[in-house]
């Protein structure tokens, strides 16, 4: 464990909690892509199956359980509790465009051809594109509430900190997880454009982020 990874995990947790609180407090999931949240729930489910096979540390186990619980709670709020506020017509990203290539790639490129490893690889590849329905939705409607942009900012920060963590681990431990690093870098690139808009529009004070 190093400071970048810990900070990255904390940002990830903060992002998820921001989203959950936004939905809970406003009693609305307007502007949130339910599809992205379903993808994140699938990501955590397929990645954390090793909860049943290996024990790494109390921190590792607790965080995994928390991420799983919060991601399912988010999906529940969007599709069950507050489904009448969900803009399904704007959440129109075609998931098969992500799922088919990701499933194919995880069978082709993995560390071992075993069910758990293929599912782990699938989760890594899927996480790298899971935010796309949300970004697509913002592009389609042309705006995002500032709370939604804070969520995206913390999610992007988590990814950037994980890259710092890998640089650190490479130099201190010689650790290099090729699949995670390549997908992680791809994933972080998706946030760069958004970071620019966040800093120039949201932080310079306006309630909503509107696209130029």
């Amino acid at each position: 464990m190093n400071i970048f990874r810990l900070a990255g995990d904390v940002c990830h947790l903060v992002a998820i909690i921001i989203l959950l609180l936004k939905i809970w407090r406003s009693r609305s999931c307007a502007g949130i892509s339910g599809k992205s949240q379903v993808l994140f729930a699938i990501v955590f489910t397929t990645r954390y199956l090793d909860l049943f096979t290996v024990f790494i540390s109390p921190y590792n186990t607790i965080m995994k359980v928390v991420f799983l619980a919060l991601s399912y709670a988010t999906v529940y709020l969007i599709y069950m509790r507050f489904r009448n506020t969900f803009n399904s017509e704007n959440d129109s990203f075609r998931l098969e465009f992500l799922l088919v290539p990701v499933i194919g790639l995880s069978f082709l490129e993995n560390y071992a051809f075993t069910p758990l490893e293929i599912l782990w690889t699938f989760s890594i590849f899927l996480e790298s594109v899971a935010i796309m329905p949300q970004l697509f939705m913002i592009t389609k409607t042309g705006e995002a509430e500032s709370i939604t942009t804070h969520y995206l900012f913390f999610l992007g920060l988590y990814r950037a900190l994980y890259i710092a963590n890998w640089v650190w681990r490479y130099h201190t431990e010689g650790f290099f997880d090729q699949i995670a690093v390549v997908s992680g870098v791809v994933q972080t690139i998706f946030y760069i454009d958004f970071f620019y808009l966040y800093v120039t529009k949201v932080l310079r004070g306006r309630g909503k982020m509107t696209l130029p």
Partner: peptide, 10 residues
């Protein structure tokens, strides 16, 4: 080499 596919990151 990769060690027994132990994924210690979240």
């Amino acid at each position: 080499e990769y060690q027994d596919e132990l994924h210690d990151e979240l």
